[in-house]
């Protein structure tokens, strides 16, 4: 029997292949493994951030601080590497720990003071952006041998497809996230909290611990996304990655996760990012379409998926 809970995921996957197929038919060189893997490597940071967002949304929350955390990570990395001459491999653990703590604090405030995640992470977003601009208002370049090595690292697949560091990191993150979400007790708790936090608590789920961990994971992954983002830009800038949280939320929704929490799959989020990437690639291949069409199309896609979710939820008894 085909379980109706897979419908959104199936639609997402089908949509990706249809869009990719249309592009492949229309343009030479679109339907290549190179374009596909470029989708992955161009959007690696977004995939990482969106995976974190998926945990949050599955639990019925939302994290608006993601973009700001990416920017803050870039600024801190560039300052520590360029100004203080730290080695990147020392810097990364430090910022990852700091980022995780930041998320944990937001989670703690949400849980202990019973505040809406939306408003707490909004304050978190202001805080992270504010801190980034206090550290430096200008873009700081990162010059370090390690960054060059990272950029060069990778291997070629047939069809001129390049798998670089970012792609490897993002696939690794996705793999671990799928394991955590679907094969650990913690994953079950995330879904439980998203289904009904009250019942989950009465069933003995440690709400405080779960909530704090969820936001800590999201901030950890946002920080990691920030590191990966700095691999592209070789710099840190306090106004970088503006609106990435919206892209991440859009990717999660297009990936078939219910925004009210409790239903959805990690894998869908990957497909969500790829769909948004395909739309962008299509528009750049076309050349006559202007870039703002990306926003409009993503808006329309968001609408369609939300409407689909609504139909599925309504179709149920009760």
């Amino acid at each position: 029997m085909f379980n109706p809970k897979f419908i959104p995921l199936a639609v997402t996957c089908a949509l990706f292949f249809v869009l990719f197929g249309i592009g492949a038919i229309q343009f030479d060189g679109f339907g290549s493994s190179r374009v596909f893997f470029n989708l992955l490597s161009d959007n690696a940071f977004l995939i990482i951030a969106a995976v974190g967002m998926t945990f949050v949304i599955l639990s019925g929350g939302i994290d608006l601080s993601v973009g700001a955390v990416i920017a803050l990570t870039g600024v801190i990395c560039s300052v520590l590497i360029s100004k203080y001459q730290w080695h990147p491999l020392v810097v990364f653990p430090v910022v990852l720990i700091g980022g995780t703590a930041f998320g944990a604090i937001m989670g703690a405030i949400i849980h202990y003071y019973k505040m809406q995640p939306f408003i707490v992470t909004l304050a978190g977003m202001f805080f992270a952006r504010g801190l980034a601009s206090v550290i430096s208002e200008e873009s700081i370049p990162i010059e370090h041998e390690f960054y060059n090595q990272v950029a060069e690292f990778g291997f070629m697949l047939p069809g001129d497809a390049w798998i670089g560091t970012s792609t490897i990191i993002c696939l690794l993150v996705l793999f671990v996230a799928i394991i955590i979400a679907h094969y650990t007790r913690f994953g079950g708790r995330v879904y439980a909290v998203g289904g009904d936090a009250n019942s989950a608590a009465l069933m003995g789920i440690p709400l405080a611990q779960t909530t704090i961990r969820i936001y800590a994971i999201s901030a950890f992954l946002a920080t990691l996304a920030g590191i990966v983002y700095s691999f592209y830009t070789f710099s840190g800038y306090s106004l970088a990655a503006v609106g990435v949280e919206l892209d991440a939320i859009a990717a999660v929704v297009i990936g078939g996760t219910l925004l009210t929490g409790g239903y959805g799959y990690m894998f869908g989020t990957l497909m969500g990012v790829l769909i948004m990437g395909v739309v962008q690639t299509y528009i750049s291949f076309d050349g006559t379409l202007s870039s703002w069409w990306t926003k409009i199309v993503i808006g329309l896609l968001l609408f369609c998926f939300i409407a689909l979710q609504q139909l599925l939820v309504r179709g149920k008894p009760r």
């Binding site: 925004l259 703002w292 069409w293 926003k295 409009i296 329309l300 968001l302 939300i306």
Partner: peptide, 15 residues
């Protein structure tokens, strides 16, 4: 859900 519904126009509106 209002956050989601208005997110659509927030994203598409600037476009």
């Amino acid at each position: 859900q209002p956050i989601v519904a208005t997110l659509i126009l927030m994203v598409a509106g600037r476009g």
